[in-house]
């Protein structure tokens, strides 16, 4: 793995099935109906069930640690949410190293769906002690 400003991370494509939306919601203990009940989600103005924020944070963390390896230690994850990531979307995560120091680096991550940027964020990562 090369760590230098400008290094681009391999793209990660996640087919966001209803199962994916629901199992991640439950695994993050988020039981709001818009994450598992399509009828309720539609009634509340959404076109389908959609990913919850804890999952998005988790996916951004996973995307960077997939690349950085098992000894990576994540210090910080900051995400800004945009378009919802609905069931049947494909979430495409891309990333690029924006800062490098002696102790780690910062990766800028973007997650896109058909409707636009679902998430933009930064992950600050170093090594496990």
């Amino acid at each position: 793995m090369i760590v230098a400003v400008g290094v681009v991370l391999p793209e990660l494509r996640i087919p966001v099935t209803p199962t994916f939306v629901i199992t991640t919601a439950v695994a993050t203990r988020d039981f709001q109906d818009v994450h598992h009940d399509r009828d309720q989600a539609v009634r509340r103005g959404s076109k389908d069930i959609f990913l919850n924020i804890l999952t998005t944070t988790g996916l951004v963390q996973r995307y960077v640690t997939d690349w950085a390896g098992a000894t990576a230690m994540v210090h910080r994850v900051a995400v800004r949410l945009g378009a919802p990531c609905y069931a049947y979307d494909t979430l495409v995560l891309t990333g690029q190293v924006t800062q490098v120091s002696s102790t780690g680096c910062v990766v800028a991550v973007v997650g896109r769906v058909a409707g636009g940027d679902h998430v933009t964020g930064q992950v600050e990562v170093g090594r496990l002690p």
Binding site: F20, T24, V26, A27, T65, L128
Partner: peptide, 16 residues
């Protein structure tokens, strides 16, 4: 158990 559920759902294969 909850960690495993999370790793499985998120698709995180980090063994650490």
């Amino acid at each position: 158990p909850m960690i495993r559920n999370w790793l499985e759902a998120i698709g995180d294969r980090n063994p650490r």
